[in-house]
């Protein structure tokens, strides 16, 4: 029996090495399945929790155009969460179960959403930095070996680009409007820079699951490589806008032709990721409340459907 499994696993590895995608009904190693469930559901949760820091400003958006764009963006995030929950469900985990994991604090999600949004400029910063970082991660992951996840990511990436543009437009407009606007942007940049770098996760040396995940193509690039790509791109954009990167150790390495930063505060990262960031409790409470207060609505719709299905069956 175990020989049989070893054989199937070998065949599975060969398929992946040859660039085939794995589909829901295909045989897959248990660990591949469980890693993907974890990965996709975390990504889905990140979209749903990620609605909250931006949702916080929908009612205060300072112009009609910004209000429409922000609301559409947060709605997109709900849509992305939806695609991702659906693709996780193809692995045999239900949305109910995933919500259970989220609401009990068992599931993780992107650390960035545990920081508060305190100024309107944060809406620009999230688009520029956070969506920018997410795009780097997601375009890489769109080439992963699991078909449903890869397809969901392709669809998501298209929309994320529009989100990033929207964020950059907010920043550019604020900067162009004078000192006050620029100060608002710089203050927001100071708060979001480091947490955004943390989004790429720990250094590769401290990232325990990586080798298997690389082999199975559910992780395609190291955390440090992706983070560096983001830093090189973003530092130059910041300079073009005349913003100061809040890192006294930042310097350009002429040999590697890339930017070196100071060390990330990993104590802070670990605190946030283990549930003790500035907004972890707040975010989960909001989700739990929405879920609990919606229970009677879901039940009513279910009851209505059952009643009417019965009556249409007897009518036939």
């Amino acid at each position: 029996m175990s020989e049989n499994i070893a054989m199937m696993e070998e065949q599975f590895n060969r398929r992946i090495a040859e660039g085939e995608t794995i589909e829901p009904n295909d045989w897959m190693p248990d660990k591949y399945r469980s890693q993907l469930k974890r990965l996709i559901s975390q990504h889905a949760h990140s979209e749903i929790i990620g609605m909250l820091p931006e949702g916080n400003w929908i009612t205060r958006a300072p112009s009609l155009r910004r209000k429409l764009a922000l609301l559409a963006k947060v709605q997109d995030e709900a849509g992305h969460g939806h695609y991702l929950y659906s693709s996780a469900e193809t692995l045999g985990i239900s949305r109910e179960e995933m919500f259970g994991q989220l609401h009990t604090g068992k599931a993780k999600y992107s650390s960035i959403f545990n920081y508060p949004t305190l100024a309107w400029a944060d809406m620009g910063m999230i688009g520029w930095l956070v969506d920018g970082a997410a795009i780097i991660n997601q375009t890489t992951m769109a080439k992963c070996s699991y078909g449903p996840y890869s397809r969901a990511l392709l669809r998501i990436c298209k929309e994320e680009n529009f989100h990033k543009k929207q964020g950059m437009e907010i920043i550019a407009t604020l900067i162009a409007s004078g000192e006050q606007g620029k100060a608002m942007v710089q203050e927001s940049f100071n708060r979001f820079w480091w947490p955004t770098l943390m989004m790429f996760g720990p250094h590769d040396a401290n990232s325990p699951n990586s080798p298997d995940m690389m082999k199975w193509k559910i992780k395609l690039k190291g955390n440090d490589e992706l983070r560096q790509r983001f830093i090189d791109m973003t530092v130059e954009q910041a300079q073009a806008w005349g913003l100061t990167v809040p890192d006294p150790k930042l310097r350009f390495n002429e040999q590697t032709r890339s930017w070196e930063t100071g060390e990330i505060d990993w104590n802070e990262f670990n605190a946030v990721i283990s549930g003790n960031g500035p907004c972890n409790h707040e975010r989960l409470n909001v989700r739990r409340t929405a879920h609990d207060q919606g229970a009677w609505v879901r039940e009513a719709a279910r009851a209505y459907e059952a009643k009417h299905r019965r009556s249409s069956e007897t009518a036939e």
Binding site: E89, S94, R95, E96, E97, F99, G100, H103, T104, G105, R288, H291, A295, R298, E299, A301, R302
Partner: peptide, 15 residues
């Protein structure tokens, strides 16, 4: 809070 796991919540049917 553990009620969330004990009572599987209804997210309606999949279509």
């Amino acid at each position: 809070m553990s009620t969330h796991l004990q009572q599987p919540d209804d997210q309606w049917d999949l279509w």
